[in-house]
């Protein structure tokens, strides 16, 4: 047991500092990916709800495809395809030579685009769940579109969407482990390196699982807190 703690501790033989840093990387790439996904989610939900047939079709294709293929493939595609596309775009702009994306950006975009497909569905459902009466009332008092979005749709929709978004966040956090295949040193990659170099795979993978559990638990508590906050005045009624 003591041997185990010196192994994952912060001593000279310990992997503690690397694991802490890697956990931070996992957290930051997940946050970046989730934010990217929110941008895609808002755009997708908007296209599905109020776009023309072309936009709606595109949004449908986006959610169908991204939810139908393994995330691992999406990461491979962004990893290898992303730089080829960038290079071609760069040449178009008169830039000579190759352009690349690092593991962080690849992970952020790949996981972000996938989570965007799920966020699209969550946000669309949330919008549809806003009581029509409230929107009609807002129209009746002469609110403009922007004001209505800010005062009614966004706060009301967010409250309804929060549990769904919480689930997508958990998913993003766990999928971020897949980015390890690009060689970016996040939590799983660091665990993998440590397991290979010490030949103690069980100790390290179990530690990895525990660290991920810690992350998902803490963040899910945060989401639950936010849910409770947004529902405060509803309970008071």
């Amino acid at each position: 047991m003591q041997a185990y703690f010196s192994l994952i501790g912060f001593g000279p033989q310990g992997w503690g500092a690397q694991l802490a840093w890697a956990t931070l990387m996992t957290l930051s790439v997940s946050v970046a990916a989730f934010a990217t996904g929110t941008v895609f989610g808002v755009a997708g939900a908007w296209a599905k709800l109020s776009g023309g047939p072309v936009l709606r079709g595109l949004a449908d294709a986006y959610t169908t495809v991204l939810r139908g293929i393994p995330d691992l493939l999406v990461i491979y595609l962004f990893y290898f395809g992303g730089s080829a596309l960038l290079t071609r775009l760069g040449t178009l702009m008169g830039h000579d030579g190759f352009l690349g994306l690092n593991g962080f950006v690849v992970g952020m975009l790949a996981i972000g685009v996938v989570s965007g497909a799920y966020q699209t569905e969550v946000m669309r459902a949330a919008y549809l769940a806003i009581p029509r009466g409230e929107i009609e009332a807002a129209r009746a008092v002469g609110m403009g579109r922007a004001l209505m979005l800010r005062r009614i749709v966004a706060p009301r929709g967010l409250r309804i969407a929060l549990p769904g978004l919480g689930n997508v966040w958990q998913q993003v956090l766990k999928e971020s482990a897949l980015i390890s295949v690009t060689g970016m040193v996040e939590l799983l990659r660091q665990i993998h390196i440590a397991a290979g170099s010490t030949r103690l795979p069980f100790d390290f993978y179990a530690t990895g699982a525990a660290l991920f559990l810690l992350l998902t638990t803490i963040t899910s508590l945060l989401f639950r807190g936010a849910e409770r906050r947004t529902q405060r005045h509803e309970r008071a009624r």
């Binding site: 000579d96 030579g97 190759f98 690349g100 994306l101 962080f104 950006v105």
Partner: peptide, 21 residues
């Protein structure tokens, strides 16, 4: 142009890509 500019900025900050021949 905007997308490309963004992409360029991102890739340059992301990686010390050797572009000079």
């Amino acid at each position: 142009a905007a997308v490309t500019a963004l992409a360029l900025a991102m890739s340059m900050s992301a990686m010390p890509s050797a572009m000079a021949k």
